[in-house]
Design a protein around this nucleic acid. Structure first.
Lengths: 148, 148
DNA sequence: AAATAATCGGTCTTTTTTATCCTTTTTCAA
DNA sequence: TTGAAAAAGGATAAAAAAGACCGATTATTT
């Protein structure tokens, strides 16, 4: 459903939300080791989020990453949209293009009407799920994260 | 959400359901041309379904493919499971392994409980959507299919 | 029987995704 | 001031997904 890259991204952002702060940054080497993600690959992913404004970074020893926004303002929807692209939420289930809800029924894909209700559930879930909520549900215990 | 291969597969099976019969088979070249799918790649996909028992094939001139089951007995769930694998419906949203609903809450991934409700909606939809229903909803008019 | 047309199956190539390597830049601390 | 630690960035490599090629086989038509 989600790409490997995207799953890495979500787990890393949760981890940074738990362990990182402006004063006490989380660095890529440790995140990668803890979460079992290839470190150089993770670095690339984190760089994307810095460019997109979800993370801030500090170079040098004691450097690392921390959330650029409040954790309740970073949703799964934001993350997936950045990594897997907005198409994840928009493209036709069985076609290549957008599943535009064109008004004339003849133009619509044959699964559009029935699937769009389900898709809406998915989108709503991704929009409602945010880093803060996840961390709270984990009881601020990062051990669960290490086994995914 | 679904792989390109899987989308090709669904569209091809719908097309075969509409145009193919045991006496009057649909052949890969025409299906590929009509649906805009690379013909050799489509052949590979259709071969998989022959092996899995969803399609039957006949060689030689006037040969081609037709459904091995009643169209109401081929669901989107069946197709996705064969092409994208059962993992599509089972693997953890943000992890690599299975999202087994282990009884001790500490072992579960932090999005499991909330996402599993959504996942169930998705699974139910895929199981309820079948080739016959789709064809009927298209009014047996294949033109819609050609534009996806 | 021969020619033709179609699937099958294997291999090969291309593209995308995932992962690694290596160098540069920045910052901290001894 | 120098060395180490960390992010940033470019280039390359490996793996997976998507797509193309071709010979073998089989069935129909002539």
């Amino acid at each position: 459903m989600l790409s490997t890259t995207c799953k890495y991204a979500v787990r890393a952002l949760i981890y940074i939300g738990m362990k990182g702060s402006e004063e006490n940054r989380a660095n890529a080497r440790i995140i990668a080791n803890e979460l079992g993600i290839p470190m150089q690959f993770l670095s690339k992913i984190l760089q994307i989020f810095v460019r997109k404004g979800l993370l801030k970074s500090v170079k040098g020893p004691t450097g690392g990453f921390f959330l650029a926004r409040k954790p309740e303002e970073i949703t799964l929807y934001d993350i997936v949209k950045i990594i897997d692209g907005p198409g994840f939420f928009e493209t036709c289930l069985i076609g290549t293009g957008l599943c535009q809800s064109s008004t004339n029924k003849i133009e619509r894909c044959p699964v559009h009407d029935r699937f769009s209700a389900v898709r809406e559930q998915v989108v709503n879930y991704f929009k409602s799920e945010n880093i803060k909520g996840i961390i709270e549900r984990m009881g601020h215990d990062e051990r669960i994260l290490l086994k995914l």
